[in-house]
Design a protein around this nucleic acid. Structure first.
Lengths: 210, 210
DNA sequence: CCTACCGATCGGTAGG
DNA sequence: CCTACCGATCGGTAGG
């Protein structure tokens, strides 16, 4: 009886976890080569299977993309939550700075992820409910902090959704401009932190003179 | 002597203006099908020439993309200037609202253009000087208004570049979020104007309560 | 400015 | 889960 010699690459999937292995492979393609390099065939190759194999686990490319996006959403909210907790902020304004920091840090560290989850590459059709849950997590954190700040009187009386949108737009725009080299990328992490902090604080206090 | 019968499509280029015709065709592909549909071959077909013809006028795809992007930059600054003039604003805060309106209007009306000029599709190499001039126009308008506002005392004493960046980030982020369907697109132009106005004013006055 | 050609990449399916 | 195949699209070049 012959002993089979493993022919698969070292990073090939093991046993029944091809589904997850394909997500890992897709993430690698995404982070190393950007959105353009994210393909089903490429992921299959990285996972060490034929390019037809993924269809056993994902209906089509969009389904794999949705799984990767879900991971991205969770990383985003984790980044925001980590900054919020690390800051130990008690005042709403400081909490908002922390959340913004978490957002921009995630965006500039994982540019392809940000473009994937917000870049319209997500087929607007269906997508599993878990994708939408993951997507709502980050926004909910922001909206809750804003709503609490309005209730406590720290922020202006105003539609919390709209105020949250202002914060979101600011940090999203900043992230995108940095990612796309529209503005010089801050040279160090410290400078980036300083920049984000000043911009978010600016939104807080307003740019007009009293 | 035979009379040649025109075989070209009605919208084919005329005489020596293929160079411009290719830009028009590229713009059409871009606006109708998004960035993905913008190809040299497609533009050539639309212009009624073979797919090898464009290389007589553009070194490669990046060169055509640069020409299209230049047009986009000029449309952006034209949109901002038009809003600024139409507003008749005298106070800095109102001028900033007008500029923001022009920016977001342009972005949501021409989403593919916005993604082209700021989406990193522009090869970071060279590109004609005219491209950079065009790109600087819009930013200069913003920075000048901000700088004048600081000088006049209407805005806080602060690095004008950084304050301009805050404004830019806000309207850029808002545009991108609308374009990418991350937030519901305002149903009417009026609602969109109202939203933009409230957000820019918010940046002006600050979201914190006094 | 054209025809004909290259090599590469894709998503997806047939049929096992 | 694999091999073999389709049709489509690209950017780019040779050679005229």
């Amino acid at each position: 009886m012959k002993i089979r010699v493993a022919k698969k690459p070292a990073d090939a999937y093991q046993h029944g976890d091809l589904r997850e292995a394909l997500v890992d492979a897709g993430v690698k393609l995404l982070t190393e080569g950007g959105l353009d390099k994210l393909s089903l065939r490429g992921a299959a190759q990285l996972a060490g299977v034929s390019h037809a194999a993924p269809y056993r686990h994902y209906r089509d490319k969009d389904a794999l993309v949705a799984a990767i996006a879900e991971r991205g959403f969770r990383m985003l909210s984790a980044s925001m939550r980590a900054e919020l907790e690390a800051s130990g902020a008690r005042k709403t304004a400081r909490k908002l700075v922390a959340l913004g920091m978490g957002y921009v840090n995630f965006g500039t560290t994982h540019p392809a992820y940000l473009k994937l989850i917000f870049g319209g590459a997500l087929s607007k059709q269906a997508g599993p409910p878990s994708l939408y849950e993951a997507g709502a997590e980050a926004y909910d954190m922001l909206r809750d902090v804003v709503a609490a700040g309005i209730t406590s009187g720290e922020l202006h009386q105003m539609d919390p959704e709209e105020m949250a949108l202002a914060c979101w737009s600011l940090v999203h725009g900043l992230s995108m401009l940095i990612i796309d080299n529209a503005i010089p990328k801050p040279e160090t992490r410290e400078r980036e932190r300083g920049l984000i902090e000043r911009l978010v604080v600016l939104l807080g206090r307003g740019i007009e003179n009293d």
